[in-house]
């Protein structure tokens, strides 16, 4: 079960990474284009910086999901490093569950935000704000999917008595 789910997440992560690689490249090109237009052609536009910003926030939400899988979100681990592996695993499970509760709330209100954004236009691109806001529910769903894996990996580690969780 868990192995199949992890394989699914592997595939998903490949797609996410492809999106990140392409959009980061686009962000660099957009800002470089903006510099060239401004200093060589003395022409400003209101869309380029905004487009780069919205791509950036999308990337942050996707990158945050990948970081959950890699366990690379910032944390203070001095106290838990002093604890027994089993206690540490239990705390990880609780933290993951708490994160998921938070994400479920965040998800439901993100959907409201996307709906609210339908009546607002962005200042530069003139697109409905729903489009950039959609990074919130999309990213949170991805974060929830990866959190589920972390949760079950830790639970099964807890079952494998005495063995330390390998996340």
């Amino acid at each position: 079960m868990l192995r199949g789910y992890s394989k699914f997440l592997d595939v998903l992560e490949k797609v996410e990474k492809a999106i990140l690689a392409v959009t980061v490249g686009i962000m660099v090109i957009i800002i470089a284009y903006q510099v060239i237009m401004r200093y060589i052609f003395a022409h400003a536009n209101s869309w380029s910086e905004e487009l780069a910003r919205y791509l950036f926030i999308y990337d942050v939400m996707i990158g945050a999901a990948i970081a959950i899988r890699r366990n690379s979100h910032l944390q203070i681990d001095i106290l838990i490093n002093l604890m027994k592996p089993k206690v540490r695993t239990i705390l990880t499970i609780i933290a993951t569950l708490a994160g998921m509760v938070f994400m479920v709330f965040l998800l439901s209100y993100s959907i409201t935000l996307v709906q609210t954004g339908a009546r607002t236009m962005s200042a530069g691109l003139g697109i409905p704000m729903s489009i950039p806001y959609s990074c919130m529910p999309v990213g949170i769903v991805l974060m929830l999917l990866t959190s589920i894996e972390v949760l079950f990996k830790n639970i099964s580690a807890l079952r494998g008595a005495g063995k330390e969780a390998q996340v």
Binding site: A64, H73, L74, Q75, I76, D77, L79, I80, R88, L91, T92, A95, A98, G99, V101, F102, M103, F105, L106, Y109, S110, T112, L113, T116, Y133, M136
Partner: peptide
């Protein structure tokens, strides 16, 4: 301090406080 990732600590803190102060949760996203 209990080792929760900081973003989760920030999120849970904000969620609980918004509830306590009876503030709209749309503030979060």
């Amino acid at each position: 301090l209990l080792g929760f990732p900081i973003y989760i600590a920030l999120g849970i803190g904000a969620l609980a406080a918004l509830n306590l102060a009876d503030l709209p949760l749309i503030v979060l996203p």
